[in-house]
């Protein structure tokens, strides 16, 4: 446990503790709308953290993470609706499915020396390939969608993930904390150092004797395994799945915007990114609605401009700058 907090200044620990405390009591203080917003924020924080393992730590750019969200969602939803298996057991199936998919993509790419942009294209291609496949798979609803029986909102059944938004909030919060701790541990482990070496210079890492292929595979598989939970959560929170939506490239981009805007490769970056981006976009939607402007696309243009500004002016993201200003950086 000590290792997790090593080198953090006291004020960073206090800040982290305070932040967590606020998040723990928040659902009791806010209205239903803010709560639903917070659930989405946590969802993106978690998914961003999972994506960050692959790109931020190991430097492998995936633009197809909606593939793992979608596969995880469909796997658990299939087990639940077709076989009556509860989502936590379904999660195992989901993790197995996405990890296998990650392994296939990683193997194909890394075995043949496909990296960088080509790798990113390959991840999109697989995601689209699977999307079209699900569109034409009538057993799981095809393009018409797969629906879960709508939850009874008055009782919270944690075992079957059927319940009120507040239950989903705490589940996602717990997963975010777990993912943060896990990633912190990963980053400080031998594995994490190997990944960072590969990220900075793959040839140099290989020359030092790091089995590059193996560690890139581990990165892809771990990241896809973690993303599976985001999918399971999505399925049981929203109760409907459409291949067109869940596998779309737009979803992948939404997942990766948070970590990039927050700070690629940092632990807090994905969380900061999610907390900045989701409320901003949603606030803008609200504002537009209030102003009576109902034009689809305005929100996305805003997303695009945010991304553009961050990429141009804050290439390292918000968090590294914020941490420096506030003196929350880890001491070496």
């Amino acid at each position: 446990m000590n290792m997790l907090f090593d080198g953090l200044p006291r004020r960073a620990l206090v800040a982290l503790g305070l932040f967590l405390a606020v998040l723990l009591v928040a659902p009791w203080l806010v209205n239903a709308y803010i709560l639903s917003l917070l659930v989405v924020v946590l969802y993106f924080a978690y998914a961003g953290q999972a994506w960050n393992v692959m790109m931020g730590f190991a430097g492998q750019l995936s633009l197809g993470h909606s593939l793992y969200v979608g596969l995880g969602a469909y796997a658990a939803a299939m087990m639940f609706t077709k076989f009556g298996v509860n989502p936590w057991v379904g999660l195992l199936v989901a993790v197995a499915t996405t990890t296998a998919m990650g392994a296939i993509i990683g193997f194909l790419a890394f075995r043949f020396g496909i990296g960088g942009v080509y790798f990113a294209i390959l991840t999109i291609a697989f995601s689209e390939f699977v999307r079209v496949g699900f569109d034409h798979w009538p057993w799981l609803g095809g393009s018409g969608g797969l629906f879960l029986p709508v939850a009874n909102l008055s009782s919270n059944d944690l075992l079957n993930l059927r319940g009120a938004p507040i239950m989903f909030y705490y589940v996602m919060l717990a997963m975010c904390v777990a993912a943060l701790g896990f990633c912190r541990w990963l980053l400080g482990s031998r594995l994490g150092y190997y990944w960072q070496a590969i990220r900075e210079n793959e040839d140099a890492a290989a020359a030092l004797g790091i089995p590059v292929f193996r560690y890139k595979m581990i990165a892809v598989m771990l990241s896809s395994a973690m993303t599976a939970f985001a999918g399971v959560f999505y399925a049981f929170y929203y109760n409907n799945l459409f291949p067109e939506q869940i596998f779309s490239m737009g979803r992948s981009i939404e997942i990766i915007l948070g970590p990039i805007i927050g700070g690629l490769g940092t632990l807090i970056g994905p969380i900061v990114g999610a907390f900045v981006l989701t409320p901003l976009a949603d606030g803008l939607s609200e504002l537009l609605q209030w102003a009576g402007i109902d034009v689809p696309g305005v929100k996305q243009v805003f997303y695009g401009i945010c991304l553009l500004l961050v990429v141009v002016f804050l290439p390292n993201g918000i968090w590294p700058m914020l941490a420096r200003r506030l003196g929350l950086e880890r001491e070496h």
Binding site: P296, V301, Y303
Partner: peptide
């Protein structure tokens, strides 16, 4: 001269802005 993924994100941003401006201007 910047890293590949930064260029990529820049163009993704341009792409998102273009697509949705077209959506706003010409309808779905």
């Amino acid at each position: 001269q910047r890293p590949e993924h930064t260029q990529f994100m820049l163009m993704v941003a341009v792409a998102i802005i273009l697509t949705n401006s077209q959506l706003i201007a010409f309808g779905p």
